[in-house]
Design a protein around this nucleic acid. Structure first.
Lengths: 142, 142
DNA sequence: CTCCGTGCAAAGATTTTGCAGGAAC
DNA sequence: GTTCCTGCAAAATCTTTGCACGGAG
């Protein structure tokens, strides 16, 4: 929601016990600059390569996994490549357009009870994915 | 829920407008014989290869996609390989154990309101995935 | 200085595609 | 007989791994 300055990026990394490197900074900033903030590893690589052309794909994968462990990102698994969500708000869920494959944040009504414990299972995470056609694609005949 | 005989398998395929072939029959029967019915393409291939050793992997993928289009299976996307669900009951959702990676059917309380239309999006499908540790894995120290 | 992160390349896993032969209807 | 499915093999996609160098703390 709130835009965070570049200098804060380093502080955020340090806060989470992560070493500050140029790679981590540009990767984290790629999410801040993205409207919506739902990027695939490949998209992150493309964007972060602009300021840092030497950046290897493997580093992107390693770093994204690191960020997930540190609680900076949340992986959204679905069709094809995994997308990473920088919006850590527990109350939101996702809508994927089956036409354009984009991912949107949504706040559906009536999902709050989902945190209810399931007997026999220790629930640690909940992922709600709505699928359909977004208004933009719905306007197109095809 | 109810076990369906082999002879019904062919009828079911015909009903859905699908040609009846040995491959499709053994693939569909693999789901009936599986407790829980959440198989990956590879698991389907392994099981269906028993009665039909010539069965190619590509055929399994093609056939599963066909079955999804025909409404016989529902794809459950998540970490790693996609699992296919033979339980078409709209009211159930899934729990994945992050230790053993198995998928269980669950009926969490309070999810009914999820079918609520999301303004601006035409929702066609809803996928709720709970993640955590199953009771079986929870009993193991590691 | 020490440790951890990075880059490179290669392998691994999953899924898709093209085409010719063959079976279902 | 016509149409659609299957098998084979190869490629495309997405992700992980091993190892040596180099920069962060």
């Amino acid at each position: 929601m709130e835009a965070v300055g570049r200098q804060d990026t380093a502080a955020l990394l340090r806060e989470r016990g992560l070493r500050v490197t140029a790679q981590r900074r540009v990767i984290l900033e790629a999410f801040r600059e993205d409207e919506g903030g739902h990027l695939t590893a490949d998209e992150v690589h493309t964007r972060a390569s602009e300021p840092l052309p030497e950046l290897a794909r493997a580093t992107v994968y390693n770093t994204l996994a690191e960020f997930v462990r540190a609680g900076l990102l949340r992986p959204i698994e679905g069709r094809g490549a995994t997308r990473y969500d920088a919006n850590l708000d527990e109350g939101h869920h996702h809508f994927r357009c089956i036409r354009c494959d984009r991912l949107f944040d949504v706040h559906p009504v009536g999902v709050d009870a989902l945190t209810v414990a399931e007997p026999g299972f220790r629930v640690e995470r909940t992922q709600v994915l709505l699928e359909g056609v977004c208004s933009e694609c719905d306007a197109v005949p095809a």
